[in-house]
Computed example of a mutant assay.
Amino acid sequence: MPVLEALLSLIGPAYLAYYGFTVPVAVVWAILCAALWVWNNRPSKRNGVARSRSASLMFFILVAACYVTAHMGVYLLARHLARLWA
């Protein structure tokens, strides 16, 4: 269900943009969603090889960057559409 979690997290930026929250709030939302996704999909939950601390940090940074990029796209689109509807 990792994909479902990621798609559901995109509701947040649309809500934040529609109600006029600023970009830093949306970035914090994206980082929190990335942290939750990494936590829910950590290797220790599965039977596998554990990652080192530095590899885990680099993986989190990569996931967080992807989340921030996707969330900012949704945020900017929703903010643009909210201005058109208002």
Rank of each mutant, 00 (worst) to 15 (best):
V27F: 13
M72Q: 14
Y67Q: 02
A34P: 03
A35N: 05
G20H: 14
A26V: 00
S52E: 06
R42P: 15
A64V: 00
L16W: 06
V23G: 00
L16R: 00
W29S: 00
W29E: 09
A55M: 12
S52L: 07
T69I: 11
R83W: 09
R79F: 09
A55N: 14
N47Y: 08
C33N: 04
A86R: 15
V38H: 10
E5F: 10
A6T: 03
V63S: 04
E5N: 15
L62P: 14
S54E: 07
R79P: 12
G48L: 03
A34Q: 04
S52C: 04
P24K: 01
A65G: 08
Y19N: 09
R46F: 09
L4S: 11
M1T: 10
C33Y: 10
S44T: 05
A34C: 02
L4W: 10
L57H: 08
P2M: 10
F60C: 01
F21T: 01
Y75F: 15
L10H: 03
H71M: 08
L10Q: 15
A65T: 12
V3T: 09
F60N: 01
Y15E: 06
T22C: 06
N47L: 12
A26N: 14
M58S: 08
I61R: 14
V3E: 08
L57C: 11
R53N: 08
A65E: 05
P2T: 02
M1Q: 13
A65R: 03
V23N: 09
I61L: 05
V68S: 04
R79L: 11
L16M: 11
A86Q: 14
F60S: 02
N41Y: 11
I31R: 00
E5I: 00
A17V: 01
A17R: 01
A35P: 07
L81F: 13
V63G: 02
